[in-house]
Design a protein around this nucleic acid. Structure first.
Lengths: 254, 254
DNA sequence: CGGCCGGTTGAGTACAATCAATTCTGGTGG
DNA sequence: CCACCAGAATTGATTGTACTCAACCGGCCG
């Protein structure tokens, strides 16, 4: 909430993504050059939000987009029946503030304490129009965004609950690996309810799916938020099974 | 399949989308100027596909992206259990060929006869790097893409089948309205099976959901592919209900 | 006419939603 | 330090919905 002029934190806005076209150009990395970052810093301010704070609401007039520095943000939408659906988790170096005809298409809230750059669209647009290079980097990030959202949709299309949960864990793990964080265990910055709203199941169902994986010896959960995969093979298998509840290896006929 | 040098069909590649930031700048419209289109035409070739033809496969090396001229394309992914999941339906003036590190992230196939521009990425990149304006239009289109994919995910997060189907019909209707096609009835260019793979249900379930809407007098189906909404009010209601099977108007307490 | 394909319908079952009770956990104050 | 509380998370019992498998229909083409 507290908005203050850009101080000396970081080197300016940052975008973490992968070039869609260069084969394996170092995988995911920082796309912006230092000059681009400082140019963006010139138009940005830093904003901070407490855990739980709503950053904007669906339908609000858009005058800025955001770039996460620290913490976790979710974008979400209320279903007509009252359920909330989480569209995405945004981590550091992610962008958020997607809009349509000048209105935000989702609401956004901080699920941890958050610091972010606030980039006014007017200034940003003129900044973009002067640099094809910078725009190209935005294009790369947007492609990343589309891929991520497609993976989310793919996850949601799975019928079995455990399967959805496993794919979710894979998603988060992939995210953390690409950011170079610890690879031996998965850290979940969100609570069970958030997970449920993301994977399209109720809170009890999330809990049961976790239990199912634990009793099968596939994962181990430490503080509720630290997950360690104890049976990588079974884990991957779990992502794509239809009915085979236990290991009753039914022959893949046809 | 038949690739031939660009002839005199159309005025070159086209992109149909909405500027995310200008409030109601004419809604969805043609983003590219005629000079941009002819500049792209210079590097494009026209390709055609028969109904059912696979255009590329997930994991193939990427050397071009595509811009639909006529017909309908789907991008899809095979689930580990064998189910196919449709990520998107692409219509005229849409782009497809999303990739990651030089590999297509989905497969693509024509579900009707299709004509498309084929834009080699190498040429396209150098074309983009010379025009910030053009890149900005691509950015707008990508934002559109993200929104559309988020709507898809939102649809998939709904639990009731009829609800998903109604949201699907709304999606298609919205698409056709924004393109200025006939608004009195919805035309479905895809078959029931495709619908099922998009909305995450089995073919019988799709059929039953249609029947449910028909017997309730909410829609009327003509040739299987032409849908007319006879009870707009009930239709919208249907999009967001939890259990209320019939019209047992239970008071919206709280 | 017979087969094939897209689509519909029917019966039984499995999975997750619902509602509700209970445990666990972290934080607060006595 | 412990009792207490509130919120998060787990577990239990029941019900409903959509999946599965299978039969059936209607149009189209050979």
């Amino acid at each position: 909430m507290a908005r203050r002029p850009l101080s000396l934190s970081g080197q300016g806005p940052a975008i973490w993504a992968v070039d869609p076209w260069s084969p394996a150009a170092g995988g995911t990395r920082q796309l912006l050059t230092t000059t681009e970052r400082s140019r963006l810093a010139a138009i940005a301010s830093i904003v901070q939000f407490r855990k739980g704070a709503v950053i904007y609401r669906e339908g609000d007039h858009v005058d800025a987009i955001f770039n996460v520095i620290r913490g976790v943000v979710t974008t979400y939408k209320k279903a007509p029946n009252g359920n909330e659906h989480i569209a995405a988790f945004l981590l550091s170096d992610d962008l958020f503030g997607l809009s349509e005809e000048g209105r935000y298409t989702n609401s956004a809230k901080a699920i941890t304490p958050v610091a972010a750059y606030r980039l006014p669209v007017i200034a940003l647009r003129s900044c973009l129009s002067r640099s094809a290079e910078l725009e190209f980097h935005i294009i790369c990030k947007l492609c990343q965004e589309v891929r991520q959202t497609q993976r989310h949709a793919f996850l949601l299309s799975q019928r079995r609950a455990v399967c959805r949960l496993v794919m979710f864990l894979q998603l988060i793990e992939q995210l953390q690996i690409s950011r170079g964080e610890q690879m031996d265990e998965i850290y979940l910055p969100m609570d069970r309810s958030d997970i449920g709203e993301y994977v399209g199941m109720t809170l009890p169902a999330v809990s049961r799916a976790f239990r199912s994986l634990i009793t099968r010896g596939i994962i181990k959960v430490l503080n509720g938020r630290h997950v360690r995969i104890t049976d990588r093979n079974g884990f991957e298998k779990m992502a794509g099974d239809s009915i085979e509840t236990s290991g009753i290896a039914q022959n893949p006929s046809s």
